[in-house]
Write a protein that binds this DNA or RNA. Sequence first.
DNA 1: TCACCTGATTAGGCTACCCAAAAAGATTTA
DNA 2: TAAATCTTTTTGGGTAGCCTAATCAGGTGA
Lengths: 143, 143
Amino acid sequence: MRPLDVTKREEEYLETIYILHKNKGVIRVKDIARIMNVKPPSVVDALKKLAEKGLIEYEKYDRILLTDEGRKIAEKTYSKHVLLTQFFVDILGIPPEIAEQDACQFEHYVHEITVQRMKEFASFIQENCSYVLKNFLKEKLEE
Amino acid sequence: MRPLDVTKREEEYLETIYILHKNKGVIRVKDIARIMNVKPPSVVDALKKLAEKGLIEYEKYDRILLTDEGRKIAEKTYSKHVLLTQFFVDILGIPPEIAEQDACQFEHYVHEITVQRMKEFASFIQENCSYVLKNFLKEKLEE
DNA sequence: TCACCTGATTAGGCTACCCAAAAAGATTTA
DNA sequence: TAAATCTTTTTGGGTAGCCTAATCAGGTGA
């Protein structure tokens, strides 16, 4: 196993590609650029690097595809994204848009155990004192 | 009001300076370097930029001091750091070292409302179903 | 089929951040 | 106080990531 080191930013590109693939099948440079808030040349730079690292398949003017390794990273990141967002919204009552933004950054740093624990905590509370949670959220959402 | 834009990394330097000042009073380049895991020349680069932005007072070979503006940023960041760490440890039962690391990154991105809400949530749970929380933590800490 | 449009790519250049090696300043010690 | 030592700073250079302007490829309508 090569000791790949994937930067935060590369992880974001992988995640974007993963989501585009999931939603539309086709992946275009300009869509990646739009979503990531950069210009197309920056996307091309990134694609070259990701291809060199074996995380995507990419031939210029051709299709863009995640390799198994790239997809693995993207899936892991994306699942953290989803779990973090859920926790912020469902447990803390954070407005979805803000929760998204927070998740979108934290997902690249947070330890596996922390996300896992958030998930377990959410279930535990919902099972054992869901009415307390409801009160908390009610109070916060009313403010 | 100048529209300062402070990078994540600069925020980290400010926070380190703030903590060193709080703990020891004196601030040395080599201590900053050790804590931030960089070499002294990198610290000097950073100090120059922070001084240009008016966030620290710095004359070479002389003392390093936060300005009011610099301290304000450092304090805000540090308080997020503390609150995030507490939440991870006290509510989720994350090992302190990991909690520290997670907090240390997230503190630079997290919205004010999210940290605030974590704080309120922690109090709310501790007041309203501390016993459920205890069970959760017990279960997790035993594993 | 050719001129035009759109999207992708290349070329060249910028900033933030980091480093090693060498020079300069401060400090300690003989 | 002069030499040795420690700390800080400068110099010169590297990488990641982004941009604008120019070029290239592919499709489309006249």
